[in-house]
Design a protein around this nucleic acid. Structure first.
Length: 475
RNA sequence: GGCGAGUUGGUAGAGUGGUUAUGCAGCGGAUUGCAAAUCCGUGUACACGAGUUCGAUUCUCGUACUCGCCUCCA
């Protein structure tokens, strides 16, 4: 069995081996998106990171023994603003955005979590939790708001390593007349007639952001669960506040906290003002495949800042192309994989899984894949193929087979023309007319056709720059 | 100001108290009519200073620089 070690933000160490509370039901909660717009590339990082962890946990504990929850925050002032400016209903916007998110994340190979709760479906548990916090003296109502009293929780700041005194000195906190303490944060806030609201003991209103995750995690995973994940920008205040709420409500909450580092683009923070802001959908539309996006993401460890660059995109495209062609050469298809499974040859590479289990060392796992890809037979390549599938880089083996024969999709005139040119070249070569032979080869290369000579036999394949119009112009 | 992370060879990027990361690029070789493709081989690396140690890129402390968060942006 693969041992798993995870860096726990709470203890700031990789520490001891991961041991689930219940190995028949390993539970993980990851903060999902606020649904008001297309997911940008940075949004994809935690999705992919925790998808890898989900796959690893399933590998180790079994598909049936992992519960993965990722929420949708579908009540938020940004959504309200988007609705107001577009004139569309909030429901329309959130429904559409959720579908976009699922499509885009599916494209980068993310398996859907077991549960994807919407915050608006959990208002009642949130209200109940807030009432409980008030009853226990950790929260108070004021002017239609309910606030969490930070001073009532002695360990506030433990996750992020901050002290309340320091933060107040920093003075970047919102001062409001209804707050007893500037650090107190909102659990419930009043809604006017134009904003979505639900009836509550404190009047019509809507929940604060932090209480959503506490309530949904509790409802779906129980008072104590194994892993809580998210981007490291959420460490404070979001996760700190979740912990305060849940602990004060009497829940043990998450054992292990994981945070991925941020994503940059060409060395700079992705931002609209720098003009380097783009969504996952933008890349897909440009023809960058989801697998390529995923491979680039996996090439940097999740706890380090990752830089998205054009160079990396290109390299990932080449690597993926090489890997797939290795498998195609050995006739990989859905049937091949089935046969390997039947023969008991569909096994994980122990070293690869070990590397992955060591705090999700995906760059190390990719290095191992490079080594495994040197296998000489279909059987010898099984751990390689298995590894590709485990990392989510290949999900459909019949597609691998299909792309090997995509020559069939070319226009009818192309293949015969290329074949004729190759025959002419063979004749020239037989006559030792090297000038003519090379002219024909250069012509094919110029149009992006790869000519490969093996044992005197010439074959061809479309290169990445294949352009039939160049071929047409040259003949 | 507070908190945290990082600094590895041309480049990307792992890792380790003494032993080959890996990819790309480069160089050499096999192969080829010449190439391409493929295969094999190959590197001068661990910011700086001090300390611990038989031995540190790897541990400790300090310095410099970079970056992130503290603004309900993952």
């Amino acid at each position: 069995m693969t041992d798993i070690y995870l860096y726990n933000t709470k203890t700031r160490t990789k520490g001891q081996q991961f041991t689930p509370i219940d190995d028949k039901n390993v539970r993980m909660y990851v903060c999902g998106p606020t649904v008001y717009d297309r997911a940008h590339l940075g949004n994809a990082r935690p999705v992919i990171v925790f998808d890898v962890l989900n796959r690893l946990l399933r590998h180790v504990y079994g598909d049936k023994h992992v519960t993965y929850v990722r929420n949708f925050t579908d009540v938020d002032d940004k959504i309200n603003a988007r609705a107001a400016e577009s004139g569309r209903s909030i429901g329309d916007i959130t429904d559409e955005t959720i579908q976009w998110f699922l499509d885009d994340m599916g494209a980068v190979g993310a398996i859907e979590p077991c549960h994807m709760p919407r915050a608006t479906a959990y208002i009642a548990p949130m209200v109940a939790m807030i009432e409980d916090l008030i009853a226990k003296g950790h929260a108070y109502a004021a002017e239609g708001h309910v606030l969490f009293s930070v001073s009532s929780y002695a360990e506030y700041g433990a996750l992020s390593g901050r002290s309340v005194d320091d933060m107040i000195a920093g003075a970047r906190v919102e001062i409001a007349p209804y707050k007893r303490d500037p650090m107190d944060f909102v659990l419930w806030k009043p809604s006017d007639a134009d904003t979505p609201g639900w009836d509550s003991p404190w009047g019509r209103g809507r929940p604060g952001w932090h209480i959503e995750c506490s309530a949904m995690a509790h409802d779906l995973l129980g008072a104590q669960f194994d892993i809580h994940g998210g981007g490291n920008d959420l460490t404070f205040p979001h996760h700190e506040n979740e912990i305060a709420q849940s602990k004060c409500a009497g829940h043990d909450f998450a054992n292990v906290w994981l945070h991925n580092e941020m994503l940059q683009v060409e060395g700079k923070k992705m931002s609209k003002s720098l003009g380097n802001f783009f969504t996952v959908r933008d890349l897909l539309d440009q023809g960058v495949s989801g697998e390529v996006i995923r491979l680039v993401m996996l090439s940097t460890h999740y706890r380090k800042p990752m830089d998205w660059t054009e160079t990396k995109r290109k390299e990932a495209e080449n690597t993926l192309c090489d890997w797939i062609s290795v498998l195609q050469k050995h006739g990989y298809s859905a049937k091949t994989v089935e046969m390997l499974k039947a023969a008991g040859d569909w096994t994980a590479d122990v070293e690869l899984m070990g590397v992955l289990g060591n705090d999700l060392n995906t760059p190390g796992a990719l290095a191992r894949l490079h080594v495994l890809s040197k296998g000489r037979t279909a059987e010898a390549l099984a751990p390689f193929a298995h590894g590709l599938e485990t990392l989510g880089l290949v999900s459909d083996w019949s597609a691998v087979e299909a792309s090997a024969s995509e020559r069939d999709d070319l226009a009818d005139w192309i293949a015969p023309v290329i074949d004729r040119l190759l025959v002419e070249r063979s004749t020239a070569r037989a006559d030792k007319n090297w000038g003519e032979a090379d002219r024909l080869r250069d012509l094919l290369n110029a149009s992006g056709v790869q000519v490969t000579d093996i044992a005197g036999e010439a074959t061809w394949a479309q290169g990445p720059d294949f352009d039939p119009s160049v071929l047409e112009a040259l003949i």
